[in-house]
């Protein structure tokens, strides 16, 4: 249970960063933290107390196995995060070229 709470705390840290930080790079990092918290949650979901790693060895089956499916999901979601982080970083670079700043409170041409 403690692990789940800590994982949730990590999630809140990420959410706080996305909402409250004004620096583009810090926002991107917070988005990463948010993603890691969810990935950690998925891995925790698949964990079994005293479980064996989910690989067959030889002919004798393992009694208790860690659930391998969430690990596959985490791998997929890491790939997706990689893609979206690359996209957002590219946007941040272009924004810096246009505005000469990473401060989001100064990047305000759209309003209304």
């Amino acid at each position: 249970m403690t692990l789940y709470l800590l994982c949730f705390a990590l999630f809140l840290v990420g959410l706080y960063g996305v909402i409250a930080k004004r620096d583009l790079i810090k926002i991107i990092l917070s988005m990463g933290i948010l993603g890691y918290a969810v990935n950690l949650f998925l891995v925790l979901v698949g964990y079994r107390q005293g479980g064996h790693y989910p690989i067959l060895e030889g002919q004798n089956p393992v009694p208790v196995m860690v659930d391998p499916l969430p690990q596959a999901l985490v791998l997929t979601s890491i790939v997706i995060e990689l893609g979206s982080t690359a996209m957002v970083v590219a946007l941040a670079i272009r924004l810096f070229q246009k505005y000469q700043t990473f401060d989001i409170s100064k990047i305000r041409r759209l309003r209304g």
């Binding site: 990420g14 979206s84 957002v88 946007l91 272009r94 990047i107 041409r109 759209l110």
Partner: peptide, 21 residues
């Protein structure tokens, strides 16, 4: 490739990623 478009896209990307999470 205009400044406003990058700004809108960044906002959209942050919102989109948070909602995906």
């Amino acid at each position: 490739c205009q400044a406003e478009e990058y700004e809108a896209s960044f906002k959209y990307a942050v919102m989109g990623t948070v909602s995906s999470t």
